[in-house]
């Protein structure tokens, strides 16, 4: 039987029927449009002037796009109880400190788990894998007790410290090191008399740049969207996302300003992802979990 063989993206692609290709393309377009519609509407609504927001039936496009909603958002913000810059400062502080901490602690730990055969490392790694299997809400109440004990309730450290020991980025980095940092390179450096920290810093770390970036992106995304938390009570320690939720809770009356807020909240993580996408995919190639 003759088989069809075609070359697509310089890869050999076998056994593809034209009907199947068409069907898949149609499915993909339908799904893609469904995924895209809500984002499209958020941007459109945020650009609508007030009179267009109240047209019945609502239009699916903007006639006279305006940035007035964004200006209104900042006006709304300046009338808030706490200066709005404070919310933004808190979010930036949490995000930067938590991500930096997670990167430092996580990469050291990933290196140790991947490249130093100390007794106990398998057990620790199993605990880390187990921690990927439940959401942090489960530990919230008990952590509240820990934080009251440590005097950290109503302190941003209560958000930052747990973020520093978040495990997903560490897990991905460890798996990436397993598959892409050769033990020979490390061994020859050790024979030349380099200590573990030196080997870690000047040999292993430069080889796992995609994994750093992935860890940074994951930590960043999580922290950037930090909303209200039971650990934080003072208004001046609340985050940007919390403030946005307050604006959103006014509902359709503020549809313009609230969609503007959503778009602003979205732009930052999406931009970060666009820049780092190829590195993240490269890291994910070794994300696999062995049984």
């Amino acid at each position: 039987m003759a088989r069809k063989m075609r070359v697509r993206n310089h890869k050999v692609v076998l056994n593809r029927s034209a009907g199947g290709d068409a069907g898949i393309t149609v499915m993909l377009v339908i799904l893609g449009v469904l995924m895209f519609i809500p984002m499209y509407f958020s941007v459109m609504t945020s650009l609508k002037p007030l009179d267009e927001l109240w047209i019945f039936p609502p239009k699916f496009y903007v006639i006279n796009p305006t940035l007035k909603n964004y200006a209104d958002l900042f006006k709304l913000m300046s009338t808030s109880w706490v200066p709005f810059s404070r919310y933004i400062f808190n979010t930036v502080l949490i995000t930067v400190a938590g991500t930096f901490g997670n990167l430092c602690l996580g990469s050291l730990a990933a290196y140790a788990l991947s490249k130093i055969p100390f007794p106990g490392r398998k057990g620790i790694f199993q605990m880390i894998v187990l921690s990927l299997m439940f959401v942090s809400t489960v530990t919230g109440i008990a952590n509240f007790i820990t934080f009251s004990f440590l005097g950290l309730v109503d302190n941003l450290l209560a958000i930052i410290l747990p973020a520093c020991c978040s495990t997903l980025g560490l897990y991905l980095m460890k798996q990436f090191m397993d598959s892409s940092v050769s033990n020979e390179a490390l061994e020859s450096a050790r024979l030349d008399g380099a200590g573990e920290f030196r080997v870690f810093w000047s040999i292993a770390m430069p080889m796992v740049k995609p994994a750093w970036l992935t860890l940074i992106v994951y930590s960043f995304q999580g922290l950037w969207n930090t909303g209200s938390s039971i650990y934080i009570q003072s208004e001046q320690l609340k985050t940007f996302n919390y403030a946005i939720q307050q604006i959103l809770s006014a509902g359709i009356v503020r549809a313009g300003a609230s969609t503007a807020a959503m778009v602003i909240m979205m732009i930052v993580p999406v931009t970060v992802f666009i820049i780092s996408q190829s590195n993240i995919i490269e890291t994910m190639a070794s994300s696999g979990m062995k049984d």
Binding site: A109, A112, L113, I116, F118, N143, T146, P162, E196, F197
Partner: peptide, 25 residues
Amino acid sequence: NKAGYIMIAPFFILFFVFTVVPVFL
């Protein structure tokens, strides 16, 4: 391999306090 313990300690202490302890607590 004591370097391994030194390197994992900062992470593990926080992980233990904020993830392992709360589950058992």
